[in-house]
Design a protein around this nucleic acid. Structure first.
Length: 579
DNA sequence: TTAGGGTTAG
């Protein structure tokens, strides 16, 4: 080491972190002859080929030292890439950078890249990738074109925009700004860091866009950021630019369609995949099934699920969730059993699916059975989501007391999501005092979280305590907390249109409002009487009806009636689903 | 001997 690590990055790690207890004590050894050395090195490398555990690694290392071999970077790199387990990488790192006298300082970019790659690909260790990069610079090893994709991937995993910007600075400094691989990972990195989407787009706009990868990176970024409409717009632009999407682009766009409820576009993509001969891989089928299910077309999803040749745990879970989403709790559970019988081992996500299926189907005892099975038979440690499912299971079934007991007995600290789930149950099942006191607690704990106020406000509304309700709404105003407006999405000619309540932003808004009016007349003449109790507002009956008629859903329906031929199915998707 | 984008979860 020429320098000790500096505070170049906030993710900097001290080298002492990597001192490993298995590190053998170096002993001075006579050097072997060149021939013997080569033979020993060969033996070592062949041992490394079959090495799959840390103890074996340390045995090989001990052998290296015993033979007095100079563990050059090639051998060390082999050592760290032999097993992808994090502890092996840590071990290789520690023997590389310890002050072992037998180790020559023959560090090179390839060696550092190996460490950076290992850490960047392993969960929760991305900061070590950054430290390794930092160490590389401190040792005056110039990064090469392979280095930055690894480093940027680590930044993406850390979701640290400032760090990403620093790395971007090094990309420029070392002259890799126009490398397409680097540009693609720059987009991916910025698009993974919350506020970085606009910068990602800037990188995207300024690069040549002839390959699908950069389009996928940008589209995927929009999807992860919840900006699915923009993802779809970009996909159209891609087709317009004559770039042929591959199966990965398609998976991202299908995920956007699922979120937007864009069934027509989703189906069109299904046809496009067939027509263009895009590989119908297992992940692509999963994305199609998910799209069908979330767009209300569960039969299409089920048909594809039945015929797809390879089903992974993701495929099964997607289908189980789809059935549960459509209220087919029993079928979802049956499919979970079928999956187990087929020898597919359920993971934690699959259990979230089956537990929420039980919850929505009101199958309390089944849910409890699966919760216990998860722990006993599959040794899965329940996460907070699983506890949340259980609280929801009891809460929906009206067993508020049992839900509360369950929370008290949980081995983990209940988070606000758990409490909000319970408050919902309190409101629905008339446990008003409990709901009120938990909500107040929540507002105290998380004063900037919108849904805490909305929940309490709804609790008051169900008690008809209008003055308290408006106090809460005022409090939100004072604290500058905005409620995410409910909005309805509708797809027309594969374009997505959005409406919020009372929306006047659409150029056709006058015609739309007239159409809503007409719909109201027709409904009344057909004998429809609006239910006003669910409006939950302290206004007189006439205004309540008016509010009902200006609902975003109504505006979307009116818009669709105005712009489609009679008999066209109309599908509306809401942005606010679940809690 | 090392490179880029993707699917399930309240």
């Amino acid at each position: 080491m020429r320098h000790s690590p500096t505070q170049l990055f906030k993710h900097n790690l001290s080298l002492t972190t990597f001192q490993h207890s298995l590190l053998p004590t170096p002993a001075p050894k006579p050097l072997l002859s060149n021939n013997n050395r080569r033979a020993s090195e060969q033996k070592c490398l062949s041992l490394l080929q079959t090495c799959d555990s840390l103890p074996k690694l340390s045995q090989i290392h001990a052998y290296l030292l015993k033979s007095g071999l100079h563990t050059n970077s090639f051998v060390l790199t082999k050592l760290s890439s032999t097993s992808s387990s994090l502890r092996s990488i840590d071990y290789a790192f520690s023997i590389t950078f310890s002050n072992n006298p037998l180790l020559p300082p023959s560090y090179d970019a390839f060696l550092f890249n190996t460490f950076i790659r290992g850490y960047a690909h392993s969960h929760n260790s991305q900061s070590k990738a950054i430290s390794s990069f930092s160490l590389m610079l401190e040792n005056n090893i110039p990064p090469n074109k392979f280095t930055f994709p690894f480093v940027l991937k680590a930044c993406a995993g850390l979701r640290d925009l400032n760090l990403g910007k620093q790395i971007h600075g090094f990309v420029s400094k070392f002259g890799f700004e126009s490398d397409p691989y680097v540009q693609n990972t720059l987009i991916h990195m910025y698009a993974s860091c919350g506020d970085g989407l606009e910068i990602a787009r800037k990188v995207f706009d300024e690069m040549p866009k002839t390959e699908p990868v950069c389009w996928s990176a940008m589209i995927g970024g929009y999807v992860r950021g919840g900006r699915c409409n923009e993802a779809v717009v970009l996909f159209r632009m891609m087709l317009g630019a004559g770039v042929r999407p591959d199966e990965i682009t398609v998976v991202s766009v299908l995920s956007a369609c699922a979120d937007l409820g864009a069934l027509e576009l989703g189906k069109w993509i299904g046809v496009y995949v067939e027509r263009e001969g895009i590989a119908k891989t297992e992940p692509l089928c999963n994305a199609l099934i998910d799209m069908y299910a979330k767009c209300g077309s569960i039969e299409d999803g089920a048909n594809l699920f039945r015929v797809m040749p390879e089903k992974s745990i993701v495929s099964w879970t997607t289908m189980i969730d789809g059935l549960a989403m459509h209220g087919h709790g029993g079928e979802a559970i049956a499919l979970f059993e079928e999956m187990k019988d087929a020898g597919v081992v359920p993971d934690d996500v699959a259990f979230v699916g089956v537990l929420s299926a039980c919850s929505h189907a009101g199958m309390v005892e089944e849910g409890c059975r699966y919760f216990n099975l998860m722990k006993s038979e599959f040794s899965i440690v329940p996460k907070i989501e699983h506890y949340g499912c259980m609280v929801d299971l009891f809460g929906r079934a009206g067993l508020v007391e049992r839900a509360l007991e369950f929370i008290r007995d949980m081995p983990v600290e209940p988070n606000p999501v758990i409490w909000r789930t319970l408050v919902c149950a309190c409101r629905v099942h008339g446990e008003i005092e409990l709901g009120e006191s938990i909500s107040k607690q929540l507002i105290g704990d998380e004063p900037m979280h919108e849904s805490n106020y909305v929940l309490l406000s709804n609790v008051y509304a169900s008690m008809q305590r209008w003055e308290k309700k408006s106090k809460i709404r005022n409090l939100m105003g004072e604290r500058g907390i905005r409620k995410v407006p409910g909005c309805s999405l509708i797809e027309l000619d594969s374009q997505i249109y959005e409406f919020v309540a009372g929306d006047k932003s659409h150029p056709q808004y006058k015609e739309i409002f007239d159409m809503v009016e007409e719909m109201g007349w027709e409904l009344r003449s057909a004998g429809y009487v609006p239910t006003t109790s669910e409006v939950l507002l302290d206004i007189d009956e006439e205004d309540k009806e008016d509010t009902l008629y200006r609902h975003s859903e109504k505006l979307a329906i009116a818009f669709a009636l105005l712009n489609t031929k009679p008999g066209t199915p109309i599908r509306i998707v809401k942005n606010l689903r679940g809690h």
